[in-house]
């Protein structure tokens, strides 16, 4: 595999986000919602802290529980909604425009094409995440938050977003229609999230299986500042499996 080829493809796709309104709309929407949530969490936390100081009752509020955990937990929900818009065009549009023929007759491998596309979308997500660093910076300037949970939350969000991206890339390879690709990404992303709901009633063995399958149940540890190898392995396997399926789909174009 040639990293140069991956980069060539990734750079084109990444730039293409900014050639169209997609990147601006997604980033603006994301930051508006996140900013509003941060503001809400912060003022709610302030009120609680004030109450604690005045009446000295209840338990001492912590920045981690009051701001960090809900903020990054909600960020996952927003990515669930926004990532389909980022990934839906990746391959579907290339098929529609016939530019897939340029990629597939160029001296690059399918793996390089897929990784290039995946990293272009990942790069956009990383930029979005980088812009949210302003919230912990505000917290550090005005308070005394713990670094651990913040760092772990970022790692968790990054991995979870990678899963959505991998899922989105796969659905984008299945169809020429971007709307179909986006809708399938959203529906299946939501399904992988909510699958653990059935674990209560599914019996002990299947209940465990469903909990382990759920994208969100693996995030819980990150939210508490715990980095668990099992969770990382789960997310990385999820991403890898999605990319593998995409590879199979692209390979099948050659046989039709």
């Amino acid at each position: 595999m040639n990293i140069g080829n991956v980069w060539t493809i990734a750079r084109r796709d990444y730039r293409s986000y900014f050639n169209s309104p997609i990147a601006y709309i997604v980033i603006a929407g994301f930051l508006t919602i996140m900013g509003w949530m941060f503001f809400f969490n912060l003022s709610h936390f302030n009120a609680q802290a004030m109450q604690y100081q005045v009446f000295s009752q209840g338990k001492s509020p912590s920045i981690t529980d009051g701001i960090i955990r809900p903020l990054y937990g909600n960020m996952n929900v927003i990515f669930l909604f926004l990532i389909p818009f980022i990934t839906m065009r990746l391959i579907a549009e290339e098929r529609k425009l016939h530019t897939i023929e340029l990629l597939m007759t160029a001296p690059v491998t399918l793996t390089e094409i897929i990784l290039g596309k995946f990293f272009s979308a990942y790069l956009l997500v990383i930029v979005m995440l980088a812009l949210t660093l302003v919230y912990p910076i505000i917290l550090f300037l005005t308070g005394n938050p713990e670094l651990g949970p913040i760092a772990a939350s970022y790692l968790g969000v990054l991995l979870l977003a990678g899963c959505y991206l991998s899922l989105g890339l796969f659905f984008s390879s299945l169809t020429e229609n971007q709307i179909v690709a986006g809708a399938l990404t959203f529906a299946s992303g939501l399904f992988f999230w909510l699958v653990s709901w059935a674990s209560q009633s599914a019996g002990p063995v299947w209940g465990d299986v469903l909990t382990h399958l759920s994208l969100i149940s693996h995030y819980q540890n990150f939210g508490q500042g715990l980095i668990n190898t099992g969770d990382i392995v789960y997310y990385l396997s999820f991403i890898g499996f999605g990319l593998f399926l995409t590879h199979r789909v692209l390979d099948s174009f050659r046989w039709r």
């Binding site: 169209s20 023929e101 160029a106």
Partner: peptide, 21 residues
């Protein structure tokens, strides 16, 4: 295939161009 593709320039039936570039 990679060596072959390196030595070929291909213009398919529909020109494979990106309208946003």
């Amino acid at each position: 295939p990679i060596e072959v593709k390196r030595n070929i320039g291909f213009l398919p039936e529909t020109p494979p161009v990106y309208p946003d570039m």
